[in-house]
């Protein structure tokens, strides 16, 4: 902000502007700050997931066979359905932001609730999937060690090479649980934030002029969606 002609911020009567914090000059400045802050935060998030993905990439470049074999034991169709659910949830969020910009309170609340419900649906489906994985003994550690021949009947456990293979399968499963796990934590945070926003929106706290929080929650929610868009091929569609 470097205006050529100096403006006197005291000329603005900011006490009557709803939602403007005392230390900002005007709504534009406040919105600019919020947007920039959110994008800086998302950059942080990219590197948070990025650290885990770098590890994943290193091992996948080494242990392609085992990663592909392990991936084929996951439920691709559940992954695909969940992607559809999450994309739809993002779409609802986009519509909520659109409604907020038009100051349509009723629509904002409706779309936010739909976003939340779809997010919850995603988490439920994910939970069921974890349960199915567990029933199949797709859990690294002692459970897998005791039951691997159910999943890989053609493997001869006495051979040292195949022991390595079985361990690398578990390495993949570790990444599967860690990546989907931290993604799920992000979903839970997002849903909690949106529940608060929905209540506030229902109470009429947001207007066509002041709706940055909804906008920002939207950015976050779409980001979580983008992460999942990459997790789908990286976890469920590994080929070698």
């Amino acid at each position: 902000m470097t205006p050529s002609q100096p403006i006197d911020p005291h000329a603005l009567d900011r006490h009557h502007v709803q939602g403007l914090a005392h230390h900002f000059d005007d709504m534009d400045q406040q919105h600019e700050a919020a947007t920039l802050g959110m994008w800086a935060f998302l950059a942080t998030e990219v590197l948070f997931f990025g650290g885990a993905l770098a590890g994943y990439a290193v091992y996948r470049s080494r242990y392609g066979d085992a990663f592909a074999a392990a991936s084929h034991h996951l439920y691709l169709w559940i992954g695909v359905i969940n992607t559809a659910v999450l994309l739809t949830s993002s779409f609802m969020m986009a519509l909520a932001v659109n409604a907020a910009k038009h100051g349509n309170r009723k629509k904002v609340v409706t779309f936010l609730i739909l976003t939340i419900l779809l997010g919850l649906a995603f988490l439920c489906i994910k939970g069921i999937e974890y349960y199915l994985d567990y029933r199949e003994h797709l859990v690294p550690g002692s459970i897998f060690e005791a039951n691997w021949h159910e999943m890989f009947p053609h493997i001869d456990g006495a051979h040292p090479g195949s022991m390595m293979f079985l361990r690398q399968v578990q390495l993949f499963l570790m990444f599967y649980y860690i990546l989907t796990g931290i993604h799920a934590v992000h979903m839970i945070v997002g849903i909690s934030v949106m529940i608060v926003l929905t209540v506030k929106a229902a109470r009429g706290r947001y207007t066509a002029e002041y709706n940055s929080p909804i906008d920002m929650a939207g950015l976050y929610w779409h980001f979580v969606d983008v992460v999942w868009i990459f997790l789908l091929p990286l976890l469920y569609m590994v080929q070698h």
């Binding site: 942080t44 997931f49 990025g50 650290g51 550690g141 860690i178």
Partner: peptide, 23 residues
């Protein structure tokens, strides 16, 4: 840009320590 990578790395160490299996 740097701190989040430390954060996820520490998560991975914590997981490995708690579950006795890790990356």
């Amino acid at each position: 840009l740097g701190t989040p990578v430390l954060a996820i790395t520490l998560v991975l160490v914590g997981v490995e320590r708690i579950f006795h299996i890790g990356v």
